[in-house]
């Protein structure tokens, strides 16, 4: 397995309700909340593709697209 690299961090702004869980628990501070209280990726280069934001999002509004195919068990 190679190093995980982020290809794209998609936020569905229609579905995001601005709870801030993704931004608060991101170990790399990749996400922030904007003036409309929607999550936005600001430091995508720091993302380690742990996918915790995607898994903890109560609104199913986050989708992580990784550069490399990751082994199933590593996705968590």
């Amino acid at each position: 397995m190679g190093k995980r690299k982020l290809k794209e961090l998609q936020i569905n702004r229609e579905w995001c309700k601005g709870c801030g869980i993704c931004a608060a628990f991101c170990a790399k501070k990749v996400l922030e909340m904007d003036e409309l209280d929607k999550a936005v990726p600001v430091r995508t280069e720091d993302c380690v593709v742990c996918r915790l934001c995607e898994m903890r999002c109560p609104d199913l509004a986050i989708e992580i697209v990784a550069e490399e195919q990751i082994e199933e068990e590593d996705i968590g």
């Binding site: 309700k17 601005g18 869980i21 898994m55 999002c57 109560p58 609104d59 199913l60």
Partner: peptide, 11 residues
């Protein structure tokens, strides 16, 4: 609601 834990369970 925003931040509802039930959404996390759904996820």
């Amino acid at each position: 609601c925003a931040g509802c834990g039930h959404g996390i369970v759904l996820n």
